[in-house]
């Protein structure tokens, strides 16, 4: 059935303390994704392989892994685009504690999302009329540019500042804070600015841009963080918050 030469795949097995890459031969198919490869290994070669996925169509953000050294969403990454001479090296996302094999502990990522003020600050109740939002408003357009984040954590894994500073909130959390800051319905402006200007906040960003370079959805967390820095500076000089 498979006429293409098979793939030489190396997959991380174990924990960071006790683990190594294991080699597998996987048949090559047309339009095969990296997630297909991992699933094939689990279904045909090694049922104990631990990994995570859900939607398979780039919406849920749960299947990100390190593929040939680069963080990627594996369900939308075609083997043909990333395999090097038929070789694939698949490991867990960087900058995360590994639970086992390809499954990482996402808790620090989501905890920072909350710590950055990322929970919506409601100012109205269900009894109030629905807020009228002008889609053409500048702040709405800015918010819209950042809200397609699926929390896949590819940016967080790609970020060298996260690697060097474990307290840094990271691109996804700060991008979320930026979208809320520009959301007319959110009433937590002061709380957000307070949250993103603390230890490990937006000022820890070194503007290297790996987040924007690797975001599978084409978002630009770098720009969001720059926006937070500008808003914080204006607030610092007392020109409105």
């Amino acid at each position: 059935m498979s006429e293409l030469p098979s793939l030489h795949v190396r997959v991380w097995r174990g924990t960071p303390e006790a683990g190594d890459y294991a080699a597998y031969e996987v048949p090559r198919y047309e339009s095969q994704t990296v997630l297909d490869v991992v699933s094939w290994i689990q279904q045909h070669l090694d049922g104990a392989l631990a990994y995570r996925y859900a939607c398979r169509v780039g919406m849920c953000g749960s299947c990100a892994m390190t593929v040939n050294g680069v963080p990627r969403w594996t369900c939308r990454t075609h083997v043909g685009k990333v395999a090097e001479d038929g070789n694939l090296e698949i490991g867990p996302l960087a900058n995360f504690p590994v639970i086992r094999d390809l499954a990482v502990d996402m808790d620090p990522f989501f905890e920072k999302w909350v710590k950055a003020g990322g929970v919506f600050h409601a100012g109205a109740t269900r009894d109030d009329p629905v807020a009228e939002i002008d889609p053409a408003a500048e702040t709405r357009q800015i918010a819209d540019a950042g809200i397609e984040c699926i929390n896949c954590a590819v940016c967080y894994a790609a970020c060298d500042t996260v690697a060097g500073n474990p307290d840094y909130l990271g691109p996804a959390a700060l991008n979320r804070a930026w979208t809320l800051l520009n959301d007319a319905k959110d009433t937590g402006r002061a709380a957000i600015l307070e949250a993103v200007t603390g230890d490990g906040g937006c000022h820890s960003c070194h503007t290297m841009g790996s987040c924007a370079a690797h975001c599978p959805n084409g978002l630009n967390p770098l720009e969001s963080i720059a926006g937070l820095k500008r808003a914080a500076a204006r607030s610092f000089f007392g020109k409105g918050s």
Binding site: G198, H203, S204, K229, A233, F236
Partner: peptide, 12 residues
């Protein structure tokens, strides 16, 4: 706000 002050001090 410590980090914020340091950031502003470095920029200024």
């Amino acid at each position: 706000m410590g980090e914020m002050r340091l950031y502003m001090a470095q920029r200024l």
